[in-house]
Each structure stands twice: as structure tokens, then as C-alpha cells.
């Protein structure tokens, strides 16, 4: 009798539904999966949530120990202050220019170099790969001082060229990664089209421009997005090369306290206008806002094309 119940088709179905069978994973597994993902996702996003919630707290809410995650009101005064302290319109434009410009050049140059490495046989290729790896590993502070002094002599310190020139020569920020991405994606493209174009008498440059470049479009997009983001977030090089001439958003954020006290001198303003963590968090949020917008618009492209290019180098 007991055996009969346990092996009744409905019981089997129920068991399969709960614990999985050959076709489905089962409800228990799914619940555990979602619970785990949501928990990890929350921990992951917690600093961001904290940043956003704190940034809309009014001074009263900040002092009120009852207010932790839900402010009593939406208070935008912090953003007004942070906007002024960051000199937002100016630094935003500088940041956009100083990340999109070098990123574009870096992507184009990396695609050329990557193509050369993927499609041609020549002596010394392993050495080139070794040196590529070296450019990725060598810490910036081991090469930055002589460059800075040279730029100073040339009067290029604080000039956009200080970041553009290395990018133009394939030595931009993390160029090696982009060269490897292009190398990998050209390797994985079939050679047939290029070979038939060669038989038709097309020159190598023409083959590269009209056949190879269009078919490596995902690699271009991935490189450009990553490159822009990394240039935007890079502060070591920008501080050394651009300080005194241009100020990017992250540069201004890193001297936030000082800039705030210039605008609102601590001895003069009333207690509610002193620098507090809500204003700091507003500044931080304004700093990542453009990146967040870009990410949410491009995320589909971003995630999918990464899978298409098969980033893993062998």
C-alpha cells in the first residue's frame, strides 16, 4: 500500500516538481537559487543604496537616529551644494572629453595592432606578447615620473595631449587588454573572406578596412565601452598629467572637502551648511551618475557582445 502511494504517478510528478528530475531543476533548487542571488545582490548593492539614501537625507534626518534607510522627506539641497562644489557642468564636460577621446583612439589603435598579431606571421611575435603582458603588469608609478618631467619640458602638462599621445601609440590605460581582445576576435573570425579578397587583388589595408573591421564590430563596442569607463575612473594618471590644467569629475571629487570649504567657509556658514556625509554622498552619486546612465542604456550590448567576443585569452 505504502509503496503504491509513493510511486503513484502524481507523487512522482510532485517530487519532480519539488526536487527536480532529468528535465527540470525543481522548485527547491530554484527557491534556493533566487534566495541566494537576491541576498548576494543586496550585499553587493548595499553601498550604492546607502549612498543614494544618505544623499537625499535632510540635516534633520541625518541627526535623527530613527531614520536609517527611509528618509522622512526627499531633500535635494545636498545635490544643489554638491553640484556647485563639483563645478559640475565644467568637470562633466572635461571628464567626457578626456575619457571618450583617448578611449576612441585607444580602440582604433588596438584594433590595428591586434589585427597585425592575429593575421600575419612574423619573427618575434612571442616577444611582442611578452612585452604586451609587461605593459599590463608594470605599475604606472614606475614609468610616470619621467613622462611627467618630459611633458613639463614640452609644456604639455595639463594639456589633453598628455593623455592622448600614449593612447595614440597603443600605450594608453590598459591598452594591452584591448589589443588581446582584438587579437582574440580576429583569430576566431573565419579567414575565407579575406583570402578570397586577396585573390581578387585587394590590398592588405583595404582588406582590413572593408572586411575585417566590420566583422569585428562587437570587439570595437566592448573595447570602446570598457576603455571609456576605465579612463573615466582612472585618477592616478589624470592627477599626474592633467593637474593644474584640467579637472575631471573624479579629480574634483577627491578634493571635495577642500573645495567645499572654499565655497562654504566653516567659520562663516551656519551649522546646517557645514559639510556633512549627505553632501559628500551626493557628490559621489553625481560622480557615478553619468556612468550609471550609460551602463543602463548600453547594458544589453555590453553583456552580450562580451559573450560574442569571447574575452578569455588563451
Amino acid at each position: 500500500m505504502r509503496q503504491q502511494i509513493l510511486h503513484h504517478p502524481y507523487v512522482d510528478r510532485l517530487r519532480g516538481y519539488l526536487f527536480g528530475n532529468r528535465v527540470h531543476r525543481g522548485l527547491t533548487f530554484n527557491i534556493a537559487l533566487y534566495a541566494l542571488l537576491i541576498a548576494i545582490g543586496f550585499v553587493y548593492l548595499q553601498p550604492l543604496l546607502f549612498m543614494f539614501v544618505t544623499s537625499i537625507k535632510s540635516p534633520d534626518d541625518l541627526l535623527n537616529p530613527m531614520v536609517q534607510w527611509v528618509p522622512m522627506q526627499l531633500f535635494l539641497g545636498n545635490y544643489e551644494k554638491a553640484f556647485r562644489v563639483l563645478d559640475y557642468p565644467n568637470t562633466l564636460v572635461t571628464s567626457v572629453v578626456m575619457s571618450v577621446g583617448p578611449a576612441l583612439l585607444q580602440t582604433v589603435v588596438a584594433s590595428v595592432v591586434g589585427y597585425g598579431l592575429a593575421r600575419y606571421r612574423f619573427w618575434g611575435k612571442p616577444i611582442v606578447f611578452l612585452l604586451l603582458l609587461a605593459t599590463f603588469i608594470i605599475p604606472p608609478q614606475n614609468t610616470v615620473i619621467p613622462q611627467m618631467l618630459t611633458y613639463r619640458d614640452l609644456g604639455l602638462l595639463g594639456d589633453p595631449l598628455a593623455l592622448i599621445l600614449p593612447a595614440l601609440m597603443g600605450q594608453g590605460f590598459r591598452s594591452a587588454i584591448f589589443i588581446l581582445i582584438f587579437y582574440q576576435s580576429y583569430l576566431s573570425l573565419p579567414k575565407v573572406l579575406e583570402e578570397s579578397a586577396q585573390l581578387d587583388g585587394a590590398s592588405d589595408l583595404r582588406i582590413f578596412l572593408s572586411i575585417a573591421v566590420p566583422s569585428a564590430l562587437p570587439a570595437y563596442i566592448v573595447s570602446f565601452i570598457f576603455s571609456t569607463v576605465w579612463y573615466w575612473n582612472e585618477t592616478f594618471l589624470t592627477v599626474v598629467f592633467l593637474e593644474g590644467g584640467m579637472t575631471t569629475l573624479p579629480m574634483q571629487l577627491s578634493k571635495f572637502t577642500q573645495a567645499y570649504e572654499n565655497l562654504y567657509p566653516p567659520g562663516v556658514v551656519n551649522i546646517f551648511d557645514r559639510l556633512n556625509e549627505a553632501v559628500k554622498m551626493s557628490g559621489t552619486f553625481l560622480n557615478i551618475l553619468p556612468l550609471l546612465l550609460m551602463y543602463f542604456i548600453l547594458q544589453r550590448w555590453f553583456v552580450e557582445s562580451v559573450e560574442m567576443t569571447g574575452i578569455t585569452g588563451e
Partner: peptide, 26 residues
């Protein structure tokens, strides 16, 4: 979930991390 887990790639920069650590939310 993919959007969530790739988000830090986009926003991790020195000054942002410094502000977050100084608030003790790291």
C-alpha cells in the same frame, strides 16, 4: 541579476571607493 553583478565594473574608481570606505559601508 547580470546588470547587478556587472555594475561595479562601471563605478569602481579611487575617489568613489574612498568616500564609501570613509562612511564605513565597505
Amino acid at each position: 541579476f547580470r546588470v547587478i553583478f556587472f555594475l561595479p565594473i562601471v563605478i569602481t574608481s579611487g575617489p568613489v571607493i574612498r568616500e564609501l570606505t570613509s562612511q564605513g559601508v565597505a
